[in-house]
Amino acid sequence: METSHLLIIDDEVQYSELTKEYLEMRGFHVVLKHDGVAGLEAFKTTFFDLCVLDVKMPRKDGFTLAQEIRLLNEHIPLIFLTGQSLKEDKIKGLMLGADDYLTKPFSLEELYLRIKAILKRVKVQEKTREVNVFRSGGTVFNVQLRELQVAGKNCKLTSIEAKLLKLLFENENAVLTRESAMKHIWGDEEYYREYSLNVYISKIRKFLKEDPSLEILNLHGEGYKLISKVHQ
């Protein structure tokens, strides 16, 4: 089974190491940050399956952070951790689209089970719909809307750019041959398309340059390979 990647942001530096240690023992890959600013930076550059956010933190509180994360990725599951048992805080968290809410002191097993349940639910939802959104590192690509978001910046793609990027993502870390790309995009493999293909690849490279985790390689005589350094 593929390891799920979690981002935990909690200002309790030493205690949160115990949470990380426990969740890693249960098979997750965990990145731990201790304030909202560092947490947001990590979120922009790495792909995560779920975020666990402490509410009361210096520099940027968990609620503000959740709003900023949601702007980058509206589907990422969020769990809030809080020392507050205030009803208003729970409501605020849920209004921000939190998938769950745990009040300290909480049991590590309960946190694990809740994470597992949310990830299971998300996977079922993803299986039941066609993949229209690709995510990797700090990049989100919505095929249907032809919208590309790289490190928090949005741009709209043309129809051909979107088709090409979709093909690259579908063949992530594998070879996309020039013939296959041309056939999918233009329906033929005419030689004069090759120049256009190069131009579109260059444009997509420019779009992705702000995300260091993604790179398009030229494979001489073969085609292209979209390399994702996330999860490697």
């Binding site: 205690y15 115990l18 240690e21 426990y22 002191p105 909480f106 049991s107 590590l108 097993e109 694990y112």
Partner: peptide, 14 residues
């Protein structure tokens, strides 16, 4: 210890 899911090592670290 319950909060640490019965893990005595984690409880001692805490």
């Amino acid at each position: 210890t319950d909060a640490m899911d019965g893990n005595v090592v984690l409880a001692q670290k805490f």
